[in-house]
Design a binder for these strands. Structure first.
Lengths: 181, 181
DNA sequence: ACCTGAACACCGTTCAAGT
DNA sequence: ACCTGAACACCGTTCAAGT
């Protein structure tokens, strides 16, 4: 009986797919193991139980979001950069609802490098616009909170849907753009 | 053998207590039933299973938050009102971490009246400051998203802790205050 | 109308045994 | 070093039976 070996990268990729396609509730050791063709207990070699699996997926999701945000901001500055970042952020949440949901649901143990990365991008935008270090950091915190707040409510179905929601989103992004000066 | 009767209000109150004291993960039908002195299956008469229990608690938590926010805004106007609302919002999340966490985690089926209530309070503040209906609604959406975003990240341990975090919070509230004109 | 008690499915977790 | 297989605890859910 040849034993199936687990590729750690495969494990996370399968878990991420489950989260996005079937939702975070379906992310179980059993489901991941079944899809990998192994027994649930075999996963304990690679992740620290059910919570560890969730943390691993949340970590991967935050990295993916951070990459999208960072990529969206290359070659743009000021209010335009904020608009691009906002669009990429929102787009990620819509395209990968499961990843986004789990990324904001699961608490991080060590301060997330991915979340710092998003704040760094925002800080760089404000700094490039002429704000001093302290103001840039404060404005970045405000922008990050606003984006996260709006998009997470929308992702949960809590904000006004459709055209009204998009109007409000544009208004918010415009307000954030004003922080550049 | 006298059967214990369940007081529905008791059920929710016990569930809310569990969430705040032991955390949302400990909110199970078994735990609630044990504390009420009944069998888990008895709860199915009052809530629609495990998900129904969570929805009921999330609903109660949103009402409690909305009440605190509303109470904080009586007798104040403009930027002062926003500051009072922001303080009450943040205070609730700190005092009732479990309630706050579950209120932002569990999706609502019917658009939440409690969430609308918070937005209504914010809209009223901006309207009283002289903004027209549309701008007031948009500003309220921005303010709501910002508060929710900042405080939910803080509640998860995602934002800068301590003094730096509070500086950033004050900056954000100040920015929101500017929307009054 | 409302709760008990038994029954079943499912998941998480541990660990000795195999390779 | 890594996976299997058995074992156990625990939770959710259903339903017939009692009151």
């Amino acid at each position: 009986m040849p034993r199936r070996r687990i590729d750690p990268a495969d494990l996370v990729s399968v878990a991420v797919r489950i989260v996005d396609v079937e939702g975070p509730e379906q992310l179980t050791l059993s489901n991941v193991a079944a899809e990998l063709g192994v027994r649930p207990s075999a996963l304990y070699t690679h992740v620290d139980g059910s919570d560890g699996l969730r943390r691993a997926v949340a970590h991967a999701a935050r990295q993916n979001l951070a990459r999208s945000v960072q990529a969206s901001a290359v070659g743009v500055a000021g209010p335009n950069a904020l608009a691009a970042i906002a669009k990429a952020y929102r787009h990620f949440a819509i395209e990968h609802p499961g990843q986004y949901r789990i990324s904001i649901t699961i608490g991080e143990l060590e301060p997330s490098a991915a979340e710092d990365s998003i704040r760094s991008v925002l800080t760089a935008v404000f700094a490039a616009a002429g704000l001093n270090e302290k103001d840039a950091a404060a404005s970045a915190a405000t922008a990050h909170a606003s984006l996260h707040g709006f998009i997470s409510m929308e992702s949960r179905g809590g904000s006004a849907p459709g055209p009204a929601g998009s109007d409000h989103f544009r208004h918010m992004v415009e307000v954030l753009g004003r922080l550049c000066r």
